[in-house]
Design a binder for these strands. Sequence first.
RNA 1: UGCCCUGUCGUCUAAUGGUAGGACGCCUGACUCUGGAUCAGGUAGUCUACGUUCGAAUCGUAGCAGGGCAGCCA
Length: 560
Amino acid sequence: MTSENDSLPGDFVRDIIDGDLSSGRFDNRVHTRFPPEPNGYLHIGHAKAVCLNFGIARDYGGLCNLRFDDTNPSKEEEEYVNAIVEDVRWLGFDWQDRLFFASDYFDRMCEYAVRLIETGNAYVDDLSAGEIREYRGTLTEPGRESPFRNRPVDENLDLFSRMKNGEFHDGARVLRAKIDMSHPNLNMRDPVIYRILHASHHRTGDKWCIYPMYDWAHGLEDSIEGVTHSICTLEFENHRPLYDWFLDALDIYHPRQIEFARLNLSYTVMSKRLLLELVRSGSVSGWDDPRMPTISGMRRRGCSPQSIRTFCNRIGVAKVNSTVSLEFLEHCVREDLNLSSPRFMGVLDPVRLIIDNYPEGESDELDAVNNPEDPSAGSRKVTFSRELFIERDDFMEDPPGKFYRLAPGREVRLRYAYFVTCTGVVKDGSGRITEIHCSYDPATRGGDAPDGRKVKSTLHWVSAPHAIDAEVRLYDKLFSVEDPLAGNPSDLASLVNPDSLKILSSCRLEPACASLGPLDRIQLERIGYFCVDPDSSPSRPVLNRTVGLRDSWAKLRSGQ
RNA sequence: UGCCCUGUCGUCUAAUGGUAGGACGCCUGACUCUGGAUCAGGUAGUCUACGUUCGAAUCGUAGCAGGGCAGCCA
């Protein structure tokens, strides 16, 4: 299990656990679970729950199960199971041999249902779905009892067993708990326990034609597994009385349900349904599009598992609905990538720079540090020559006062190489600069002047004859508005940030980048953090921008 | 006009009846072969009212505001 060195304040969930530990409620055990439904991909909101559940188990020396809540075969697929397993493992968590499925407990759940019927706590109802809704009442009016509510136990037993045996069509009957049709909490108005669904299940095949409802199933799963603290999101708060009622009615082991606020992130959405909508509408390329807040999207974007864990551990756990700023996620990503990413030089928008006093046809091997934050990362050679590419942005013919980079007559340093001074530019017919001419000072080889003179800036560069071509995909926030759901927009797609993806197809990278493999994370000096996309090939690397470096020049410029 | 939950810097979150603190963001400055990183400083908050108390963000009452709930979804 991953250990985290962040020392963090506790949270209300841990406070509750501390209380249970001191009162001896669960025999000094702490046992949690992460219970995804396999009907979609995991997103950063799920990561919060994963980190909470596995993190608590780690901190208290307890256990955390990975359990699939697969009680609805019409929405669930094995593809999702596999993706979820991969994502949780990638995040750095381990459930040992405790990978469970709700469907493993279907037989026991049925036995429990029979017990509920026998004790007069459940009945088979012949009402249709629409009738049940009508009988339920409203938020302000009590419901009415079903005419089938007082069937004798034997009849209920018989009908339930025939439901199970497939004698009835979908929707013909349901098994309901007998609680209180006038309860102020609608969940307690005789909730449905089993429905008939002649559907093939991804694990049990056609063995079942009745499937348990969440409220019934979830507490049983927790109870069967000996879970102590069943941590879920706020929308289940109103379900807790029912969770407790079932376990009490059955008189079986009774975990404690605790609800916390789900994560919201600015400039994105966090619902499987809406994310699926973006996929279906083609607004993004798939669940793993690097703009998506999914774990697979973030992985492809280049966020490290460590940075996601750090983020989840720092945002805290509370009961207030809140929206964490995207900037905070980016901060956590930069913080980790700064320490762990090897540096390379690459030019996104190249302009040719010619060093007139450098001998034609010659080249030079210079030492470059791989990671200034990590001496053990060592160094590499970069090849210098007479013709280079630098970033078009790094030159201005008529620079404003705060522009420190290259300009006519000005001397700057080329990273790890030489000081160069701009002597002139060449333009094409439209006035666009096609070449920048410089002279270099051979005495500054390596990047320092023996006479101690300083320059205001250092530029990254690549050698024109040695550089490799690359495609770079610049990703930005998914939506152009901070809260895409504000005002219930009818089409989310129209709010997608038009600049969320810019593809640059003629970038140049230093040759060392050729050895990079899919999902490798690097820093391109002075630009940002990048991740090698799976679309990449050795002959044509494709880099995804994870997040830019903080850029005080860009900020200065945009502020004017 | 039912029931449940929640209100602390712009944002996220601590303080568990005893000095309202941290982080992100933002603003200054220092340093720097990444205008990166790092370091130092600054900015800014207890929803309102009444009550309990020597003392209230914390406890109580009322109000206001936000969120959730009427699937045979989870």
